[in-house]
Amino acid sequence: MIQSVFNPIMRFYAELQKLKNTLAIVVAVALPLFIAFLSFVIYISEGHKLVVPGINPWKGYIYHLQKFWAGLLLPLTIILEASLINSIEHSNNMWKQVYTLPVSKSSVYLYKLLSFIFLNILTAVSLTLFVQLFGYLLILIKPEFGFYAPSFFGESLMMSLKMMLASSAIIGFQFFLSFNFRSFIVPMVIGFCLTVGTGIASSWKYIEFLPYSYPSLSTNRQDAGIWDSYVSIAVISLVFLSAAGFYVSSKREIS
C-alpha cells in the first residue's frame, strides 16, 4: 500500500531531478523575473502616465503585465519549455535507456508530462511572486504612486493559474510534438507560427476556435472565477492530447 503511493512520487521526483543544471528550470524562473523587472522599470520611468489617481495602482500594474504575458510570452514559454524538457532525453539519446526500464511505456509519457506541468505551475507562481516583489519595491522608490494599497496577491495568483489552465491545450500539443520530434526546431517553429498567427488573428470573429488564444481570452474578465469555458475546453484538450501521447509512447520503437 505504502509502495503504491511512494513509487509514483519517487518517479515524479526522478523527472524533477533530471531538470537539475538545465535551462528548463532557469527559463521557468528567469523569464517571469525578467518580465516583472521590465514592468518595474517602465513604472519607474513612465508610471506617472499609467497610475490613475484615486484607483488602486496594483490593479492596472498586474493586469497590463498579465495581459501581455498571456498573449505572447506564456505560449512562447510553453513552446520553449516543452522542447527543453524533452531535449534532455533526445540529446542524450536516453529514450533507449528509459524504455528498457521495468516500467510501462505509457507511464514514461505521463511522468514527463507531469514534470512539464510542474514547470508551468512554477512559472505561474514565479510570475505572481516577482510582480508582487517589484510592486512592493515601487512603494519604496515611488511612494507617490500609492502602491501601499492592498496588492491583490490572491487575485493575481489565481489569474496566473487561470492563464496556465487556459493554456492546457498548448501544453498538451507542444509537449506531444516535442516528445515525438527529435529536432528541437520543428516543434518550436510550429508553435511559434501558431502563436504569431493567433496574435495576428486576434480580432477575427472565430478566434475562439484557436486554443492558442485561450490564455489571452481568459484574462479578459478579471472578476471571473478560475474556471470558465476557455479553461474547460483547454483542459479537455489536454486530456485528449495526453491520451494520444500515452498511446504513441506505448507503441514506440526505439532505434
Partner: peptide, 9 residues
C-alpha cells in the same frame, strides 16, 4: 544512478 534508482524503486 540516483534517478534510475527512483525510477525503478
Amino acid at each position: 544512478l540516483h534517478i534510475l534508482c527512483n525510477l525503478t524503486s
